[in-house]
Amino acid sequence: MPVIQTEELTKRFPAVTALDRLTIDVEPGVVGLVGANGAGKSTLIKILLGLSEATSGQARMLGLDVTTDGPKIRERVGYMPEHDCLPGDVSATEFVVHMARMSGLPADAARERTADTLRHVGLYEERYRPIGGYSTGMKQRVKLAQALVHDPEIVLLDEPTNGLDPVGRDDMLALIRRIYTDFGITVLVTSHLLGELERISDHVVVIDAGRLLRSSSTSEFTRTSQFVAVEVTAEPDTVAGQLKAAGLDVVRDGHLMVVPLEDESVYDIVRDTVAQVGVGLIRLEQRRHHIAEVFGERGSQ
């Protein structure tokens, strides 16, 4: 059963149309919502949560209508906003306990689950200090913790890797993946960074200027093609000639040479040829499609 469903969802502001007849179907798993800044990602999340009202169209979460069953939906949903939303003078524990109680957990359960959740997101002794002194990474973890503490069925994460350094980003992405695989909670993640969503999502929805560009599973997007890309330090023409002599079709793509991958022996042939010519081998990899190509496709539509 789809966890998120929208039909012709439209949101118009006086100056701009944030969502334009968006129709999507999202199955359980990790769903990446990709789009440039201002593409409508945050607007969609706000409408799904009932924080904002759509101009027209329908939206359903977990089978419930967003406009009529808002409170029931909000019992089962976790939200991690993009912007700063943490008070500076309380500790992480106090804050998450309070938020857990605001989600309907009784006091004891709230405390227990807060301790668990903060451990799961990776906050240890820091949790007793005021949030004002936290680093960005720690603050993002607190935001994530308050979204998970009440064991929701689905969490909506708006740009969770914003402001994190590369290591922090990797940690956060790994955590997001585990939320689905280990905790069993469906995740909707937004980002304007395409590469990271490729890594962790099962399904990708691409929107641009409020319109749906593409919605398909990640494996479709990035399936490996049966081609190998080769890049050398010098004398590409010589190498290309030698490869052709060895019986491979070579297509030049800028400084790359693309060779069809008929079987495993192609790798050996390329390696031996390059060594024979006496130049360095920079790249020998399978060509993969990238989500960025989708935006290229839009240009050609």
Binding site: S103, G104, L105, A109, H150
Partner: peptide, 19 residues
């Protein structure tokens, strides 16, 4: 520090109080 411990996730089956 910051790496997730694999303690195992426990779901919540307890009461959810209303408005």
């Amino acid at each position: 520090a910051g790496v997730i411990h694999d303690i195992g996730y426990r779901g919540y089956d307890g009461p959810r109080l209303g408005r």
